[in-house]
Each structure stands twice: as structure tokens, then as C-alpha cells.
Design a protein around this nucleic acid. Structure first.
Lengths: 219, 219
DNA sequence: CAGATAACATACCAATCAGTACGCAAACGG
DNA sequence: CCGTTTGCGTACTGATTGGTATGTTATCTG
């Protein structure tokens, strides 16, 4: 049925993402992708010029999915603390608990060491995530802390989240759903919210500011 | 020159590690490894049975090198705070600043998602690193904190270190030598040493205990 | 010195896989 | 209704590469 396949690129991209998230880039052939999408290799090459091109498309798909998930999760929340915690929960669930996403991003990391375009794409995605968290943190924080320090805290928290994801790959038990809250608490602590703080508990919606009490005490 | 090559496996392993650390596992062929070690593929297969086998050998080589570096660095230090900080410095330099090690471990991460033996090896290595940090932390800490909490802090710190390494792959500037001290400070903060604390500064050798002051204040 | 043995090289095989050439058939334009 | 366009399938090629089969040479043993 010619003259009618505007959804074909998207279908191939999604099929590719699913396979990549299961087996990695190298282990998946163009034939596999085409078959998984219900077509053949010849058709594949009438929509994408190379395997590399659909890898880039799969990356863009992943970035979009993450941002869509986050936006939907906080669309109806107005309390800044709730919003921050909710985004952390979503991110942990998506990055740490979901094996497919773990495999996919790990493959992206390996690839971006060799491919400038992949690196640039990830860097841009990471920038947008950082900006988002920075906004959430400043909103939840009541602007108590200089922007430079907030940014450093966000960077450290994002690093910790990446690291937790890595660990989940070889210690699956930390990816259990029971651990999710613990991980979120840890990340909030890295962001400057002390462990005992109720500031960002999803239940409360009050406690407008002074939620954080960064420790500067020395020995 | 037969009957005389007990160093050949080690030479091949080191050659393989160097190439893997530059180009990744898939991009390096057995021919490349053999050539880099000054022999041919036929010789390679008289020392290793498969490409996978030398990848495992290269992993073991990496683990050994890291532990050797750490041991040498703290052999002459007796102050617990100095020891902890020194190990962090060495780890950051080795993991974050060294591109080769970054590439290699990233490849290992990608591979351990598909290979149980690689996963088991890395898991064991990671365990030994965690135990080491736990010992260093408890020593530097004067046993102020329950072991479970110390372990959680170590896990979070190690996660943050992994994440910083990942970021260094696509934001090379954070891997600059100038940033090294900042990263170490951040990691110490995650471990529970407040930012202003001089407890673990490499200069001082006093301040035996009460270096940490975990915040439990709430909003 | 002779035979065994182990390190190493040469040449090859077989499988995999990205990418291509080409043909067919269905929808569109005129 | 006819020709063009376009999506898609079939069949192929060419290059790569892990692994092997088969020497060849030098050292060791007796």
C-alpha cells in the first residue's frame, strides 16, 4: 500500500528502541529492526539512510519520552516541594527500575565516547534536565541559596542518580520498588534537604520556604 | 623462540587493555591486539581461547591496577582523614581524569548487561572497593555513626563518583585537574563531612574524631 | 645429534551484516 | 484510464572478522 506511510519512521524508531533497550546497539541488526516493525530491510532503507541514523532517532525518542513523562507527572501539582519530589520519583522509577532504559542509556554512554553527534545530543538532553531540576530546586527552596551552589548541588545529585542506575545493573536488588523511596531520600539529601526533613514529602503541601538547612558546622 | 614466553599472556592482556581503553571492545579486533603486542593472530590463540577470554583478562588487569594504585598511595599515611581523602583523590584522578579508564569501564558496563561472568567480576570488584571505603570512613569517623548508615553513605558516594565519571565523558571540562579538589569535596560532603569541615583536608593530621556532624534538623 | 614440543606465522574458512539493485504493485495526477 | 511516483519486498554484494588448519622454527631432552 504505497503513498501512505507517514507513521512508518515512528514505527521503525519505536521498534528499534525496544530492541536496543533489550540487547544493545551492536547486537541488533537492521533486519531485526525491520522485522520487529513488520517490514523488511529494503523498506527500512527507504526511511533511514543508515543504522546510525536510526540510533540517533531512537535517542531522540528516548529523550522525548522522558520529558513527556515528567511533564505529565507534575502538570497538576503546584506545591514546589511536591513537584520536586515527584520528578525525582519519576526519574528514579524510569532510570533505575526500568531495565530497558538502563540498557539503552548505558549503550548511549558507550557510543557517545566515539560519536560526536550522539555526544552532542546527550549533552543537550542533560542540560535541559539540569535546568529543570535547577528550577524545581530554587522554587522549592525559596531562593535561600546562591544559584551557583544550587547548580553544584543539582550536578552532584544527577551524578548520584546516574551512579545508582549503574549499580542497579549489577546489583538488581537496589532497583527493587521498596528501595525507591530510600533512593529518593538520598537524592534529596544530596540536594541539601536533610534526611529528617519533611520538606519535600509528597503528602505535605505547606512549608513554603526555609525547608533546607544546609549545614556549615565544622568539627 | 619457543619454550620461552611466560610473559606473553600478560603482554597480550596489557596490549588489549590499551586498545580497549582507546576504542572499546567491539572496535578492537583480535588482529589488532596481536599486532599491538607484536605477534599475530595465530599466536594469540595459543594463549587465549577467544576474544571474550581476553576481555575478562583485561578486566582483571584493570581491577588489579586500581587496587595497586590505591595501596601504594596510602601505604605511608597513618592519619585516617588523610587516608580517606587520598584514596578519594586517587580514585577521582583515575576514574574521572583518565579518559582511557573512563572508556574501559563504560564498555564494561555495557558488556555486563549481557554477560554474567563480566557482571560477577565487576560486582566483586565493586564490593571490595565498598569495603575499603567503609573501613576508611569508619576509621576517619571515630565510629560515630551506625554501620548501616555509613554503608549507605558510602554507596551514595560511590554512585556519585560513577555519575561524575559519566558526566566527564560528555562534559570534558569537569574532568579538568582544577576541578579535582571540588569533586573530592563534593564526595566528602556526600560521605557526611560538611563542606566547611577541615576534617579531611590533606594538610592536617590532627582532629582525631568528631569530624562529622550529620544534620538531623528538620524544617 | 635426533625427536618431541611449544611458540609463532601464514593462509584460509564461514558466518554475519550493512548497504544496494531492482522489481512489483498500489495509489495518485491528469 | 494511463503513466508516474512511492512504499515495500526479494535477492544480492562486499567487507569484516572470529576462529581454525597447517606449517615452520627454535629450544629442550636424552
Amino acid at each position: 500500500m504505497p503513498r501512505s506511510a507517514p507513521q512508518m519512521p515512528a514505527r521503525l524508531t519505536e521498534a528499534a528502541f525496544e530492541l536496543f533497550a533489550e540487547h544493545g546497539f551492536e547486537a541488533v541488526t537492521v533486519d531485526d529492526i525491520a522485522t520487529h516493525a513488520g517490514v523488511t530491510k529494503g523498506s527500512f532503507y527507504s526511511h533511514f539512510q543508515s543504522k546510525r541514523e536510526i540510533i540517533l532517532a531512537a535517542c531522540a525518542f528516548y529523550y522525548g519520552e522522558y520529558q513527556r513523562k515528567v511533564q505529565r507527572a507534575i502538570a497538576r501539582l503546584s506545591d514546589p516541594h511536591q513537584r520536586l519530589r515527584r520528578v525525582l520519583e519519576i526519574s528514579v522509577r524510569s532510570c533505575v527500575l526500568d531495565r530497558g532504559n538502563r540498557v539503552f542509556t548505558t549503550e548511549v554512554f558507550a557510543l557517545l565516547l566515539q560519536d560526536d553527534e550522539v555526544r552532542a545530543g546527550w549533552s543537550q538532553f542533560y542540560d535541559s534536565v539540569r535546568k529543570m531540576y535547577l528550577g524545581l530546586l530554587i522554587a522549592a527552596d525559596g531562593c535561600q541559596v546562591p544559584a551557583a551552589e544550587a547548580r553544584r548541588a543539582v550536578d552532584l545529585m544527577l551524578a548520584a542518580m546516574e551512579g545508582v542506575k549503574m549499580r542497579a545493573a549489577f546489583e538488581p536488588q537496589i532497583g527493587s520498588r521498596a528501595q525507591q523511596a530510600t533512593i529518593v531520600d538520598d537524592l534529596l539529601r544530596v540536594l541539601g534537604f536533610p534526611a529528617g526533613s519533611r520538606a519535600a514529602r509528597s503528602a505535605s503541601s505547606a512549608t513554603p520556604s526555609s525547608a533546607r538547612s544546609r549545614t556549615r558546622s565544622t568539627s
